[in-house]
Design a protein around this nucleic acid. Structure first.
Lengths: 208, 208, 208, 208
DNA sequence: CATGAATGAGGTTTCATTCAT
DNA sequence: AATGAATGAAACCTCATTCAT
């Protein structure tokens, strides 16, 4: 590696670090107020950069906003994959999925507020590339459900797309309520119950 | 009834009508853009009143916004009560609840966008009186669930608060996706499947 | 005239007066700096109105800018018509036209700076309605030139469109130089000489 | 010539070349948008240099802007001199001057837009050294006019300063209109007519 | 009671210029 | 000498709210 290359690498990592700092500041600010109520000045102040600097890294305010899930999604998917490895049987995988979902937002409530309270309901967002890659991450759940149907642990007459909606629906609902109640309890408390409900339904318990 | 009283009643109903017109215009405008992106000017134009007039009926923009669910909630609850009458058994009542929920938003997508895409995730809103009365309407579902546990159609070891979250979670999720996809299909198509999923779960079908 | 009508007339004339005040302030500001270097704040200050008020009367900064010539052009054309009345013969009319042109800008140097130093060279301006009406006012000069050709005082083989360009060219040039030299001399001093030059050309004096 | 000197000469010509590249890029950019609407970033991009580099060669944006006519004027004057050589009689020289003026801008419309639509009307520009040297180039026309008066082809009672204004006025007017009309026709078409008009005036044709 | 003209604070974005590398 | 990241001031425009009529 020659000198120029070496120096450019340092410059590059500095740029990445500054970009990260801006995104982190944006997460903090956007999680308190809505997109419209947040302002660039405060993000710049928190990131310790000038306002104009933000526009060197992001096209505009919306670009910055929608850039937030990119990194976060990557980490989420990678970790989820690790957590699912070595687990056998769809039911156990579903329980793990539920656990990890709650665990993740328990650890990232600020990002949760942005993703679940703002972006999830934004007409603009669902046209974004970021949204596409986010959807991809929920696609793996379908694989688990199909696997369950093949191994006989999940009924074959269930619409797995709707089942996914049920799982995501209750998770989103639980996390959303938790966020709106200012995270006054530990989200993970719920994980076993949610798993039971999703897997066993509301009818009579199965004889074993 | 004397004349003055009579005239004042006419004046009163006129006032109520104008208030209604403003709220209706607000629903139309707030359902297109977010609270911050909507403006009073357009609401006034649609309601055929002057901008200043809105401030005779509502304290400020937020007051107008949060006034929207009041009327709507009243109609929703009344109709839901009627629909549930004469139905026996918790499972049937749950199915009817699901059907009515989907039916209501299928008929009121504009209000749906306001309630589910905006208010449901607003920190301010959950401190509102309106929110309190809205919650009351979802409280009746607990009664149905308890009834089910007593009559033996719902397992006694299920946390009914969480079960309510599951029901509301999937319904909100289904309606939210439908709204974001510009209502391109009929929401009611889903009602039977959702009921099956909630009631039977994902395990092996029960022998009858 | 009923009361409402009467009152609305007062309101109307107030609005017109305020609009006039804004235009006048705009003339003062735009004549000092270029369009881009001028700012709305200063115009508002000079007009004694709030910045936002300007946007009630004009769509945006450019709309305000291009609104300036409207009124002025009207006055110019009307006065010019009066001045040309009762004068016989194209040469005399041309002399009067030259005199009035110089007289007008001698009396309105601020407007001159805006029209001749800014608008005349603006690609945007020539697409404006205002420009169209302005051109109309220079069209009457063609009538005079045609009249001259018919009465035999102007050579028939001269391209009158080019002749108009010559007349406007020298007038614009003379006024432009005067404006750039901070109006240090009286513009009307030039009127006779310019007339001679345009009418007699540079060749040998005609024998009389 | 020693080695160091030789190398420094190469360095020098490289510097000159880079300066030229910047000026050329500036001409391209400034001819599209106004001085204020043009930006250094785009000029730097077109010149294939960094933004900061421009500030090594020019004090600031205005310095770069006003540097444009320097080179161009030099070429214009030199070529004009060549074209006038061997031509006898003021009228023929005036015709040639007109022809060359139109020819030059026909070949350099970008520079024309900068010089005639921007600089010519800039209060700042007329205080520039560049402007002084530009004026010098129009001074030679006075020599031609005096020559004409001495040889009897131009009337002695004509104010030659005003006559120069007439010639420059119509030329500027013709070229300005052509530039604003996006150069849709060939500018040189006009040259003979303009010469006729300037030389013969509008009165009766001279008997020959 | 109704109006709508007026306000002016506030926010996003651009861009000439600097300076450390 | 060249770079280009960083700066931060400046400006247009919007809009909720007020208040005189």
């Amino acid at each position: 590696m020659n000198m120029v290359h070496f120096l450019s690498q340092i410059a590059m990592s500095k740029k990445i670090a500054k970009r990260q700092a801006i995104v982190q500041a944006a997460i903090e600010v956007f999680s308190i107020k809505s997109f419209r109520d947040s302002n660039i000045r405060e993000i710049a102040k928190r990131a310790n950069v000038a306002e104009g600097t933000i526009y060197k890294y992001f096209k505009d305010k919306e670009d910055l906003f929608f850039s937030i899930p990119m990194e976060k999604t990557k980490g989420y998917v990678e970790q989820l994959d690790l957590h699912l490895q070595g687990i056998t049987g769809a039911p156990n995988k579903i329980r793990k999925f539920i656990w990890y979902y709650l665990h993740f937002f328990n650890a990232n409530p600020e990002y949760g507020r942005i993703l679940l309270l703002e972006m999830r309901v934004s007409k603009r967002f669902i046209k974004t590339k970021t949204y596409a890659s986010l959807r991809k991450s929920t696609r793996q759940i379908l694989g688990i459900l199909r696997e369950g149907q093949e191994e006989g642990t999940i009924r074959k007459d269930v619409n797995i797309y709707l089942l996914r909606q049920l799982i995501l629906g209750i998770l989103e609902h639980v996390v959303t309520r938790w966020l709106l109640k200012q995270e006054k309890y530990n989200l993970l408390e719920r994980h076993k119950e949610v798993g039971d409900l999703v897997l066993h339904g509301v009818g009579e318990p199965k004889m074993s």
